Amino acid sequence: MTRAYNFSAGPATLPEPVLRQAQAEMLEWNGIGASLVEISHRSADFIAVAAQAEADLRTLLSIPDEYAVLFLSGGATTQQALLPLNFAAPGQTVDYVVSGHWGKTAVKQAKPYVTVNVAADGEPGGFRDIPARADWRLSADAAYVHITANETIHGLEYRDVPDVGAVPLFADFSSNIAAEPLDVSKFGLIYAGAQKNLGPVGISVVIVRRDLLERDGQPRADIFDYRSHAARDSMLNTPPTWNWYLLGLTVKWMLDEGGVAEFARRNAAKSALVYQAIDGSGGFYRNEVAVPVRSRMNIPFFLPDEELTARFVAESKQAGLLALKGHKAVGGIRASLYNAMPLAGAQALADFMRDFQQRNG
C-alpha cells in the first residue's frame, strides 16, 4: 500500500507513525488483554493515558498552571455554543470579530444566548483581509472578545495576538493550534477541534483560565458546564476514549519531532512552496488573501475557469494528491498543510501545479 498526500481540511491527515502505533495496539493495548477502546474510562489504565495526554499537551503548548485543560466530546461548533452559556451573564454583550466562514458560525452559535456585538466584519471585503485592529468597535463591558485565529475556508490567519485590554480574549484555534509557539497567557480561553493538528474528529480541547470558570454564566445543564468538566478531569460523562488516546499519540509525536518551534519552521517552508507556485504563475493561479494574513495551514486558490478547476481536481487525485477541491462556500482549490503533512507533500503539490500550468496555461 502506498499512502497518498492528503490535503483534506478536516478530518485531516494524521502522522503515519501514529496510525501505525494505533494499528499495532488496536487489538490489545499494553498487555491488558483488551483494546483500549473497550476498557472503562474510569480504569487506572485509561486515566493514565488521559493524564499523559494532558501533561504532554501542556508541555507542547507551554500552558501555564493557572489554565485548566478540558478534553470534550464534539467539535469546535459545540464549544462556540457553550462559550456564552459559561462566561456571559443573561443579557450581557459579547464582542465578535468576523474574519471568515467560521467567525460567522461562531456568531450564529452565540446569538440565541447573548447580545452579540460584531465589532468588525471582513465580509464586505470578501473576507480577503482581517479587519484592522484600529477599526474594531469593542464594547465597554463585553464578557469577552472572540476571534477565529485561522479561517480554514477563506485562508486567513492572525499573525499577531490583538490587544483587547482587560476583556478576556477567546479564540478558535481549531486549524492552527500547535502550528507555532503561542503565548497562552494572552488569552482567556483557547478552543480547538482536534481533527486538523491534534488528532481525530470527535474530540475538542478547551484551554481556559481558571478564574474565568468562577463566572456564573447562564442557567445550563450540568453537562454543558465547563466547571463540572474541569472538576472531574473531563470525565463527567463517558469521553471519546479512542479519540483521546489518538490525540495523546499525536501530541507525543509532535514533541518527539521537535515541538512547536520545529513545526513553525516546517509550516513556513511548506506554505512558501505553494504560495511561490501561485505567485509565480503569472495569474494562472490566484490567491486573493492579503499577503500579511495568508494562512500557513489552509491555502485556497483559483484557476481561470471551472473546467480547468475540475480537471485540476481529477488529475491531482490521479497523481496521489487528495482532497484538493475547495469548500463549496468559495469553490476553487484548497490545500491544507497541517503539521502531519510532510514537506515532500507540499513539494509534490507545487511541482504538480507547475506541470499542470505548462500543459493547460
Rank of each mutant, 00 (worst) to 15 (best):
P15T: 10
L70W: 03
S43P: 03
N6C: 11
R20T: 09
D45G: 00
T59N: 04
S40P: 08
Y67T: 05
Y5L: 14
A4W: 13
E16G: 06
P17V: 04
A22C: 01
F7M: 09
S62V: 03
L36S: 00
S8E: 13
N6H: 14
N30L: 06
G33K: 06
I47T: 02
A24E: 12
M1W: 07
E28H: 10
P11S: 12
E54A: 04
V37G: 01
E16F: 14
D45A: 12
W29T: 07
W29C: 06
M1P: 13
A24G: 09
A9R: 08
E66V: 09
A50I: 00
V49A: 01
N30H: 12
L19H: 02
A68N: 02
P15H: 11
E16Q: 15
H41P: 08
P15E: 10
P11Q: 15
A68G: 02
A48Q: 04
P64C: 05
S8H: 15
E28W: 07
L19A: 01
A44T: 10
A24D: 11
G10T: 04
I32C: 03
L27D: 15
E54F: 04
P17S: 04
I47S: 00
N6Q: 13
H41R: 06
G10E: 07
Q23N: 09
R42K: 10
T59F: 02
L61W: 05
E16I: 14
S62Q: 11
N6G: 13
L70T: 05
A53P: 10
L60W: 01
V69W: 03
P15Y: 09
A51Q: 09
V37Y: 04
V49L: 01
Y67H: 05
F7N: 09
I47H: 00
A51D: 07
A50C: 00
S40G: 14
F7I: 08
E16T: 14
E25D: 12
E38Q: 11
Y67V: 03
F7C: 11
E66Y: 08
G31T: 06
M1H: 14
I63T: 02
D56M: 07
Q23M: 07
L70V: 05
E38M: 07
A50R: 05
A22E: 05
Q23F: 12
A12S: 15
G10K: 15
Y67R: 03
L14D: 09
N6A: 13
P64G: 09
G33C: 02
T2A: 15
A48N: 03
P17A: 03
S8T: 10
